[in-house]
Design a protein around this nucleic acid. Sequence first.
DNA 1: CGTGCCGTTGAGCGTTGTCAACCAGTGTGG
DNA 2: CCACACTGGTTGACAACGCTCAACGGCACG
Lengths: 185, 185
Amino acid sequence: MRYKLLANGNRPIMAYLIPGDLCDVHVSLLAQMDHSIATLSPCRIAYIPRERIDAIMNDHPRLARALWWATLVDEAILREWLVNHAHRPADQRLAHLLCEILLRSKAVGLTDDDSFELPITQDELGDTMGLSTVHVNRTIQHLRATGLITSQGRRVVVDDLERLMEFCGFNPNYLHQQSEAARRR
Amino acid sequence: MRYKLLANGNRPIMAYLIPGDLCDVHVSLLAQMDHSIATLSPCRIAYIPRERIDAIMNDHPRLARALWWATLVDEAILREWLVNHAHRPADQRLAHLLCEILLRSKAVGLTDDDSFELPITQDELGDTMGLSTVHVNRTIQHLRATGLITSQGRRVVVDDLERLMEFCGFNPNYLHQQSEAARRR
DNA sequence: CGTGCCGTTGAGCGTTGTCAACCAGTGTGG
DNA sequence: CCACACTGGTTGACAACGCTCAACGGCACG
């Protein structure tokens, strides 16, 4: 995850990185890091030396383009989070976050029939959505009561993805998950 | 500004573009636009054809790098907005937004001794920060009463920037406004 | 002199936060 | 094997922040 530490004791979480995501191109381009990165579960991490990125920029314009593309997708996700945090009530906010995690996990083959492992505590969900732990808990119960999700321990099951997306106004286009062919038109 | 239109009638504003900002590199890289762009005041806009961007990517790695850099700064700003929207109360949220607009305007020479024109209605500020117009109004009055800002019509005057930044916990590092020399280290 | 936009104010309500406590599961050391 | 501590989830009561609804005033524009 990406996070910051605030003077008031809050620890806002600003992004979840799932397997396959680039996490740190910033380091080679920006002079200083403006946030921190931490793991929420055991991770395997590939290290790409700065010189390698430089070399790609110089000699491989198509790869450079792809890297830039990845940054633009991250940006799109951030914009959607912004919308989600500031303009939707807690229940839709949580539902929206779950939809995104489900679709992104699915894209890398980490789901099992619209159910997935969520290695995130309710406290961390609160830090992500700007809600208190208590309210996150009640919101989860609300979604369960409405039949929108089922959860056993860390496993979240979405029985009817269409309905969940409908509930929170989820439009997946911001994830830009089309095939490369479609992307180049 | 960048904005979206939601089914529930909201119109979240996700970014303000000030003179000199790139507004639309997305078009040449992402297959579809996931948000809209509109002007809040009269603007002069430079159009860069898609082929020109392609050419830069292929033949001018240093320019390509600079474009990518600009994207990363946009991303950093989005992250900070995310923090601001989800983790600060209304008064600090507004103060933080004003600090950012002031610093970004100052960087392009649009300020006059820590005062600047803000061509944004209270309604639009509400759409930006996820607050109702009424509450934005009361928040502005609160900042005025505390002596943190003065405003005459569209003009906002910050008498004591240090104090305003202190009030909202503003850390300007996310704007990455160092000189190019510092940036390359 | 109307019309419309923007800012302002008041009253009442609802969502969410805080505080405090309790419970279940898990790992640890005696 | 059993206390013990610790983490994460759950619940209740109450307060606060921010929203909605409704109305009004100033100002620009035609």
